[in-house]
Amino acid sequence: MTTSSLEASNSIAIDFVGVHKWYGRFHALRNINLSVRRGERIVVCGPSGSGKSTLIRCVNRLEEYQRGLIVVDGVELTQDIRRIDEVRRDVGMVFQSFNLFPHLTVLENCALAPIWVRKMPRRDAENLAMQLLTRVKIPEQSSKYPGQLSGGQQQRVAIARALSMNPRIMLFDEPTSALDPEMVKEVLDTMTALAQDGMTMIVVTHEMGFARQIADRVVFMDNGEIVEINAPKLFFDNPQHDRTRLFLSQILR
């Protein structure tokens, strides 16, 4: 780890303390403890149904948890809807299925939240949206509707839309899993650029090359619990837990 990122890691961005979650009787998250430092890039991996998505969806309260504590940027997530909104303004999220708004143009998708949540004048919001679309390298698509774009382009718009609220933390929930293979790279490149700009990121993904290249730490989950946390080099070259070794042997050939 470089000195600059050590300095940036002085404050904690997200803190999970003994978090449990149940879906009905199903124990989906079991005693999750994890501190994400500011500027840190965390990759979460694990078999399907292991609770990875549930974990990051708890951070912006798309899912409730029943026991424990999550603190995001010093704000404790409670039932209080104002606190939840405060956290959501600070945390951007990118979904597997993009979740762009099909009735709005690409530009309107990216300007919507700044206009209505940040109360930014329309012209400023549209300028900001154009800047972000330039950053994800699709400014020329701004007047099209999401349905007219390829999957990779849609996901880059979704990243730009999430960035429009100027978040300090970005969550990625399997951002490349719904993409055709030839479009995975353009999305990963966008995420890599974001990581290099110092964004705090939690990424749920099966892209192990990306994890190895970008992650500060890799979190392996299975059966609702965190099994192993390690730096990517150690995680991939010398996994400690049996379940980690089994998982890696299944996905890496």
């Binding site: 798309l62 959501r88 979740n99 708004f101 209505w116 999430a162």
Partner: peptide
């Protein structure tokens, strides 16, 4: 789909705005 609600909520839109705009 649920995704439209989640996309709006994740951006910090509150219930009235999510309904009216999305």
């Amino acid at each position: 789909g649920r995704g439209q609600y989640e996309g709006a909520l994740a951006l910090g839109l509150n219930y009235p705005r999510m309904m009216a705009l999305v």
